[in-house]
Design a protein around this nucleic acid. Structure first.
Lengths: 213, 213
DNA sequence: CGGCAAAGTGGCACAATGTGCCATAGTGAC
DNA sequence: GTCACTATGGCACATTGTGCCACTTTGCCG
């Protein structure tokens, strides 16, 4: 898609951001977010506290990159989908694509996400981050979905579709995190999410059936 | 339902809590949550800062009571619904009941909610509170819904139903807040929410149709 | 190579948040 | 009226998050 704005400096910034995120995730999972100070995260990440707050606007925000990776890819895929394709079909195959890891790196990404979600079940601060990520995703999805909607659909339907899609993904991930946070079988995520998506969207006031071209 | 644990002290506490909540809502709506200090809210509410933090665990939390009033009533109604009634039907009439104000006081409550939601569209901190309220509502709804589910339903379906219901209510309120935050016509809320609810739930793997007893 | 502009980094000070602790005032039961 | 109990307020404190300035590194161009 896009792979060129990678100056050496930019890459190092991505690296330190991820480094901080993983350090924070580890500490938060171990002791709970409340018992970890920003100074501690910064120190273990090899940066000054002031620098930490240049990368993230709050202590909890540090783990956000680990939760948004999938969502960002998803939005990009939806935005790049064939405009003539049925919206529901496009959402289905993008959901499937995002939740079907194709290499070890993608599996690792999902494992970080599920691990954090598992820790979030007993940590209010982490739940906040997760909800914020999902809410942002829903808003973002509305923007990329708007051009792909059939012309006669109402604004309400657009909102409902975005909410249904993000809810389906969110619930599939939350359920997986509670059942098997280690993601022993990475292939179960997509079917669960698709099942949820179809149940939530089959009643929407859209093109009669996903079988239409 | 319950009306007796009202000692004089308890009532005064409720009053000051509401007083603080409305003061905070007014200040937040005027200047944005970031530009208001906890000291200011406390002072204008006639309490000390330390007391403010005994009522609310954070500055933003102060407005939560204005957003949860409806949700709390809703959960109570669902929990008290006829166990033999179809779950979808029970949710429909409780949604309708909560969003159909029956007196001036209930209209005022909804106006405070919509006013805050309107302010939240341009205030990240208020959005966080709103999302937290909705997330809590979804979890709470799962608990009160669980006993009313048909025996053969899966845990995933329960999650989806709770998510669909809270999303329907949330989106109806958000849309109303953007269009008409003054709630000139209080009767439009319920139909919108019911429409959204039916669209999101008609595809769920539940009792075939709401016409079944 | 030398040097210069731009951006990343760190240190410091500071307002503000949120909590523990103790003293005081108000309430309710007897 | 006394006495326990609870709400409230004041104070100190660790922590958060930001503005400001100095320093270092990076990238670029003569």
């Amino acid at each position: 898609m896009n792979a060129e704005p990678l100056s050496l400096t930019e890459r190092r910034k991505r690296d330190t951001q991820l480094e901080i995120a993983r350090t924070a995730a580890r500490l938060f999972s171990d002791r709970g977010a409340a018992a970890v100070t920003a100074e501690e995260i910064a120190q273990q990440s090899g940066v000054a506290v002031r620098t930490f707050y240049r990368y993230f606007s709050s202590k909890e925000d540090a783990v956000a990159p680990l939760l948004t990776i999938g969502a960002d890819q998803w939005h990009a895929l939806v935005a790049a989908a064939d405009p003539d394709e049925n919206v529901l079909a496009a959402l289905e195959h993008t959901i499937s694509a995002v939740l079907t890891p194709r290499n070890a790196e993608e599996i690792e990404g999902l494992r970080w996400t599920l691990g954090l979600l598992h820790a979030a079940t007993s940590d209010a601060a982490l739940q906040h981050v997760w909800h914020r990520v999902n809410s942002d995703s829903e808003v973002q999805l509305r923007s990329v979905l708007a051009p792909a909607m059939p012309t006669e659909t109402t604004p309400l339907t657009l909102r409902l579709l975005a909410a249904a899609a993000t809810s389906a993904l969110r619930i599939a991930l939350e359920a997986s995190a509670e059942i098997d946070r280690t993601l022993k079988d990475p292939s179960v995520l997509a079917p669960h999410a698709l099942d949820a998506f179809r149940q939530l969207t089959s009643g929407l006031d859209l093109a009669p059936a996903p079988s239409a071209s």
